[in-house]
Structures are given as C-alpha cells and as structure tokens.
Design a protein around this nucleic acid. Structure first.
Lengths: 219, 219
DNA sequence: GTCTATATCCAGATAGAC
DNA sequence: GTCTATCTGGATATAGAC
C-alpha cells in the first residue's frame, strides 16, 4: 500500500479539517484575537509548526471558517426554500433548527457564534468581512423569498419581505449572542413564540402544534 | 488657587473618565483581546504607564465599562417603566432609542456593542460576565413588566411576559451585532416594524404613526 | 501626576533536522 | 509530514526619574 498522490491528498485534507474543526470551537469561544495558534495546535494534537504547513496564517484559518460557515448557512437556506412544506413551516423549521443547533453546542452552533462574533468586531480580516456581507445579503434574500411566498398563501403577516427577513436574521444573530451567556436564568425564547411573530393569526397564548423537526441539515 | 484634595479628586476622576471613554470606543470596535493598552493610552492622549496609575489592568478597565454600560441600560429601562405613556409606546421608545443610538455611533452605541461583544465571547473576565448576567436579568424583568402592563390594557399581544421580554432583548442584541457589519446593503429593520411584532393589531403594511422620539436619555 | 525606560513574557511565524 | 528550536516583534505591567 504505497502512498499515491490521491492518498496524500486525502491525508492532507483530513488534517486540514482537523485543524479547522479545532479552530472553529476555539474561535467561537474566545474570538480571533484571544485564540492562540498554540491552542489550535494543541486541540488538533499537532505541533505549532505543523499548523503553518497547512495554513498560511491564523487569519487564513479564520477566513476559511467564516466562509464555510456562511456557505453552509446559505446552502441550508436554499434547501429550506425548496422544501415541500408551507412557507410558514419553513420559517419555523429555520428557527427551530437554529435553536436546536445552539442548544447542542456542536459545530453548527460554533459556526453561528463565529459569524456573530465576526460581525460585532471591526478588526476581522477584510476577506472575512466580505464573506459576511455577501452571506448575510444572500441569506436575507432567501428568507425574503420565503416570506413572500408565505404572504401569498396568507400564512405570513404582511410587511415588506426584505424588512421582515432583516428582522428574522437579526433575531438569529441575537440568539447566537445569547448562547454566550452561560447559566442563563432567563432562557432563550421558544421557536413557537419566535415564529408566531411572523404569523398572521391572532397571537394565542399557546399554539397546538409542536416543534416541527424535519431532517433538514442545518448548517 | 492651590490644589486642594477635592480638586485633585476631580482631576483624577476626569482623567479616569477620559481613559474610559477612549477604551469604550476601542473595546466596542475591536473587542477586549485585540485592544492594546497603548491604543487606549494614545487615544486618551497620555502615556502607557499613566494608564496603570488609574487602573489596575486592562481587564479592570473592561469590567468597569461593562458594569457601567449595563447599569445605564438598567437605569434607562427603569426610567422607561415610569414614563407617562402607554406601555406599547414604552416599547416603541425603547426600540427607537436603541436604533437611534446605534445609528449615531456615539457612546451609547458603543456601550451596547460592548455588551453584545462581551456576551458572545467566553473569555471575558469573570466579573464582566457576572455583571452581564445580572444586568440582562434585570433588563428582561423590567421589559416583562412593561409587556404585562401592555397586555392588561390590550395594546400588547398575549404570551408569557418573560418570554416576550426575552425576544425583545434578543432583538436588541441582534441589532447591536448588525451594527458591526458596515456598508449594510440590507439596513436594519425599522422601529415601527419591530414594535409591531409585539402588537395586537392585525399587522398592517404601513402604520400611520411615526417614530415617537421623546427625551429619554437612553443609556 | 506624568513620563521614559525596561523587565518579562509570550505570540506569530520560520528554519531546518529527521 | 512532522517536529523542535528559534527568530523577531510586541504586549502587559513595573520602576524610577522628574
């Protein structure tokens, strides 16, 4: 089993993913500036020097993570658009997915927090900022299309779709930020309540339906 | 006019405030870890060493800023509770104030962004985290009381007041995060739309009333 | 109170042996 | 591909002159 080029490439990709995965958690927890290369290397189980064999710099790792986080979110939003459920339920799936992901504290949660953390700070690498702007724009456009469809079938409240999508995205960012505050005595709002903000029905104290939990892979 | 103790104290307080004001802007822009003491000193027009004459450490400056930011927000919320307008308009004043503050990019905006930035990151000083939790709890309690009053007079939609307050606070954090994304092609949602999320009225495309802009000093 | 100088430490990134 | 050793710069914080 001599090493062939493809095998080497696979090993290389695997290592890169290992580093990225370790870095994602650290960046989400501590932010770009407070995360040390040595932390990343340690978490990935390799030496400091080896990190630079796979990436040009700390910033480069960060940028790649922000890019892929947003790409995954955009892909997730597009998948949602094509889902065979009512627009209103598409919104509910999105919010439920975000809430669930944040609660699980896995890679998906870290990706969201990374995006929020990159958004608050003005000292992120320019490429990361660009990815952020592009991704946010596309996400909001996608949400706006769902909103519009919901208004057409009467399940979503009236209002400028772009503006409602902006509210939707603002809520998601807010949820990501709240995850950071541990031992939350006041837990984050439920998906039911959140989606009811966008509904047309007279808001009821409790709605009958439970959280939809479909098989959407949410970023 | 020889220096007396009180005069010295005033000078000392003034200098402290100068440093704090410079640090607030920097921390809000770049976060705790990426802000250098030398940046703060330069912005305040003093030497690096002198900063340590007034504060024990960089962390201490940060903690004091987080504390005072939250204290101001809590005070602002309490003031809002006692305002002689309808509960619904109190909510609108709060959201309008936040939006206006963020747009102005002054100290109030920086305070909000500082809080959001401290909330996302897990590596803030323990004292800052404590202040954050306490402040958030008190803020949500305050908002919940307004919501409850609004439900009593029929101007606010039904729902658990604590949960609606949680949504409210989540939105504010989200707005603070969005401020960080410059050249926003998709601008943040309007205060009218935001407050309409909490209203009982059938959501209309456009509401007649314009932004209330009272003289509340918002944090 | 204020500055300059500096001790001390540690980070990002590179070099080169294996 | 991987590591150890190291260069180099810069950051926090302190010491001590004025």
């Amino acid at each position: 089993m001599g090493r062939n080029p493809e095998g080497n490439q696979r090993i290389r990709d695997q290592r890169r993913r290992l580093v990225l995965s370790a870095a994602l958690k650290l960046f989400a927890d501590r932010g770009l500036a407070a995360t040390r290369i040595s932390d990343i290397a340690w978490a990935a189980g390799i030496s400091d020097g080896l990190v630079y064999h796979y990436f040009d710099s700390k910033d480069a790792i960060f940028v790649e993570l922000v890019r892929s986080a947003l790409a995954a979110m955009v892909a997730s939003a597009h998948a949602l658009e094509n889902l065979a459920v009512s627009p209103r339920d598409r919104l509910k799936l999105a919010l439920g997915g975000v809430r669930r992901d944040l609660a699980r504290r896995g890679d998906a949660a870290n990706a969201l927090v990374l995006v929020a953390s990159a958004a608050v700070s003005a000292n992120v690498p320019a490429d990361a900022l660009q990815a952020l702007e592009d991704g946010q724009l596309e996400l909001q456009a996608s949400i706006a299309r769902i909103v519009e469809a919901g208004q057409a079938d009467g399940s979503v409240r009236p209002g400028e779709p772009a503006e409602l999508a902006s509210v939707f995205w603002t809520l998601i960012l807010g949820l990501a930020v709240r995850r950071g505050i541990r031992s939350d005595n006041a837990p984050a709002p439920s998906a039911e309540l959140l989606v009811s903000l966008f509904g047309v029905d007279p808001p009821a104290l409790t709605r009958g339906d439970r959280t939809l939990d479909a098989g959407t892979r949410s970023y």
